[in-house]
Each structure stands twice: as structure tokens, then as C-alpha cells.
Nucleic acid binder design. Structure first.
Lengths: 126, 126
DNA sequence: TTAATATATACCATAGTAAGGATATACTAA
DNA sequence: TTAGTATATCCTTACTATGGTATATATTAA
């Protein structure tokens, strides 16, 4: 992976939000779609873009595609996501997104009918 | 300045090299041109790009245009340039450029006929 | 004024990126 | 097999970025 590619991913707000979410753990497209409030095509394309550049990984789990960061995530990526956390005025969605992610995981824990094949816990190793 | 713009500048090798140099202090176009070994047009365009995004500042000093980082430089920019210093395998020019910059400044100190109007020392405040 | 130097801009071609709509693919369930 | 769901791809259009050549601008020196 070329480091330049990291910056190519960071220079777009949607991709930044996706990486911020994936930093916490794997997510499937439908959940990213729900959190970002974007169309399926847009999310999917951004994921393809980052996958092609080697910044995210994809793995199929039943009907779902689960995206994640390579382990361990590049320290420079983590440092940037960390540093951006404090810029709440410019990136208000940074914390909001993480909150919504937690809600979804909670909902998923309560109701296994939703995304039943996706066991994010077991995906932490990919 | 929007932080996203910072990443837009970082995602290109030439711009990265320029920022790495400006981190050490102001430089005029001709010196950047000499260090990077690129054409005047390319350097100038990259500088315009970053200036438009609010990442670098420009000030005329006689015939020369002196470019610099806004003071104080954004911590996220410094953190990234710092973090990249260690990636000598991927960015071998990172240290080389700084060495060449030092040589130019030395040469300038020895011979004032070169870029006589440019007093980089006095430019540190811009 | 004229000439010379440093730098920016205009113009053109090419490539990369982004967004939307429609459609295709892959998998699951029945 | 069929239908349904999740995701990816194709196609078009528009915008942004990159690179090159030529030219314009600004400043200095004579």
C-alpha cells in the first residue's frame, strides 16, 4: 500500500466518515448506508475506490459484504482519525456516526433477524 | 481553511515534497524548482493549487515569489510530515530534499548575488 | 524607454473522479 | 426453480486534476 493512497482516501468527507466507522470495527454496506444516509451506489463506489487503493478489505458474509480495515491499521491512519476527533466544529458527524454505529450494533444484538449472517465480533480478525 | 483541503494537498507526491520543504521555512519558486527538479509551470501550478485551498501563503519579494506555511502551521500537517519522515523506503526524497534545501541556503549565504532580494530569515514571520 | 528575469496564466489535450439511473450479479429462502 | 435482498457494475455526464507549450505579467536593471 502506498501512503499517498491513504491521503487520497482521507480527502473526501464520505470516505473519512467510513474510515472513522471502520476504525471501530467491521461494518456491512447496508449499515454504512444507514449511518451516512447515502444511496447504496455512492457508498459502494467509495468502498470500491478504497479497496482498489488497498485501504480497506472486503469479505462476503452471506448476502452481505463486510468491510474492514487491514489489521493492524496503519498508524498514520489512526493518528489522523484520532486527531480529527477533536475538530467537532468542522466534523460534527464524527462522534454522531460512532453513536449511530453503537445503536445499530445494539439493535443487532437485540434482534438477530437483522443481518443474521453478520457476526461483527468474529470479523475482527480480518 | 477546511481540513479536507489539507488531505487534498497531501495526496500528491510533489505537493508533499513542497510542504515538507516549507515546513522548514519559506522558499521561492526557483529554489523549489531546483530542489524538486521539475519545470517552472508544474511547481507554480501546484503552489497555486495549495494557495487556493489556503494551505500555503505567497508574498512577493522583488522578482521572487516566496511561499510559506501559515503560522503556526496546522498541527495535523506537522504531525503528518513528521510521521512520514520515518518512511524512508517509500519517500527517500524526504531527507534528500531537506539536505538540498540546506545546500541552497548555504550557497545563498556565500553568494548574495543569487536571489539577493530574498531574505528568508526576515520571511519567517509571514 | 528597453531588455532581462521570475513567475503566473491561458489554452489544449488527457485522465481521473463523482453522481445518478438502470441493470447485473451473488446469495438466501421458499 | 423462483423470488427477494444486498451489492456491484455499466453508462452517461460533469467536474476536477495533470501536463505541455506558449504567452502574459510584474519587477528590476540599464
Amino acid at each position: 500500500m502506498e501512503l499517498i493512497n491513504l491521503y487520497k482516501c482521507l480527502c473526501d468527507v464520505q470516505r473519512l466518515r467510513i474510515l472513522n466507522l471502520l476504525k471501530e470495527g467491521p461494518l456491512c454496506v447496508c449499515h454504512l448506508q444507514e449511518i451516512l444516509g447515502e444511496t447504496q451506489v455512492k457508498i459502494s463506489k467509495q468502498l470500491q475506490y478504497m479497496k482498489k487503493l488497498g485501504i480497506v478489505l472486503a469479505r462476503r458474509q452471506g448476502v452481505w459484504m463486510v468491510y474492514s480495515l487491514p489489521m493492524p491499521p496503519h498508524p498514520l491512519l489512526l493518528a489522523n482519525l484520532q486527531g480529527l476527533q477533536t475538530c467537532t466544529d468542522e466534523f460534527p458527524w464524527f462522534a454522531e456516526d460512532l453513536k449511530n454505529r453503537a445503536l445499530i450494533l445494539q439493535r443487532f444484538a437485540d434482534n438477530l433477524a437483522e443481518c443474521p449472517q453478520v457476526v461483527y465480533q468474529s470479523a475482527s480478525g480480518c
